[in-house]
């Protein structure tokens, strides 16, 4: 398979997810290009988190196929047919993907530095000094050079989230997923985390998929906005046209509601 910039970095093809009898993602078709930054917005419960979790392989899918760089993630090809992937395949392909969670999920018994060293050492087999060097660089990049030896409990929410970003980056992912990464933060700490994400976008060739309620940030940062409603993309487009001239009535309702709330 030839890989070029035209092959989508991520592609959801007819992806369906159910919890019991509730269909939360309904035949989703959605492609994200190399280096593209896409913001997922929409009402609570519309399936935005589920989309990220399926891509991170935290959830099994019930239908369709997810592709990463032209290779099936959720499936493997066997005899010309796609069959559900085993754990080894999932592990190999998800190495391209990193995720930052709403509640940070840092390892509380490790310092900031150790949090960023654990996976590079045990998964990539980096020697300790090299892992420490990479971790220190990344903590520096997120503005936490002075907090290397602090435990998560000794850091503010914004600092913890920045450690979590550094931790994910230490695995050199090609795709980064952000799930409402500023929602659990006090308002005055939101900016420092968004600044780190801006910097990432500017300095790295990362594909980013972010769920956010920060409409201003989405408008300024994303290449494309996708509006979710009941497990489907109701409307998508470039930020200017999406926010400037939303076509869908539901989109207009949603935007009115969130903009009123500010």
């Amino acid at each position: 398979m030839t890989l070029d910039r035209a092959t989508p970095m991520v592609k959801f093809a007819g992806v369906t997810k159910r919890y019991g009898r509730l269909t939360v993602i309904d035949g989703l078709d959605f492609a994200i290009a190399h280096g593209e930054k896409v913001a997922l917005i929409g009402p609570s419960g519309s399936g935005k988190t589920t989309v990220l979790r399926m891509l991170m392989t935290l959830e099994r899918i019930d239908g369709g196929v997810i592709w990463v760089e032209g290779e099936p993630l959720t499936h493997v090809e066997r005899g010309g047919r796609l069959v559900p992937a085993d754990a080894r395949h999932l592990r190999r392909v998800r190495g391209k993907i990193g995720m930052v969670f709403q509640h940070f999920n840092l390892f509380p018994h490790m310092t900031a530095l150790k949090n960023c060293m654990e996976a590079p050492m045990t998964v990539l087999g980096l020697p300790k000094h090299q892992a420490a060097e990479r971790a220190a660089e990344l903590l520096d990049m997120v503005g936490l050079a002075g907090k290397k030896n602090h435990y998560p409990s000794q850091l503010s929410g914004g600092q913890q989230q920045r450690v979590a970003i550094a931790r994910a980056l230490a695995m050199r992912p090609k795709v980064m997923l952000f799930d409402e990464v500023t929602s659990a933060l006090d308002p005055e700490l939101v900016g420092e985390v968004l600044n780190v994400i801006r910097k990432l976008g500017a300095e790295h060739d990362l594909t980013m998929l972010m769920v956010t309620h920060q409409m201003g940030f989405a408008k300024e940062f994303a290449d494309r906005i996708a509006f979710f409603h009941r497990g489907k993309i109701e409307e998508e487009g470039k930020p200017e046209e999406f926010f400037g001239n939303p076509k869908n009535e539901r989109t207009r309702q949603f935007l009115r509601a969130v903009l009123d709330a500010v």
Partner: peptide, 27 residues
């Protein structure tokens, strides 16, 4: 142990063995 610890371990691609040894059991 909160579910988020397991999920972070998967997102970082840790093996099940490493997840138990380094993340779950020490907590």
């Amino acid at each position: 142990i909160p579910r988020g610890q397991w999920e972070a371990s998967i997102a970082l691609n840790l093996s099940l063995y490493t997840t138990f040894k380094d993340i779950i059991l020490p907590q």
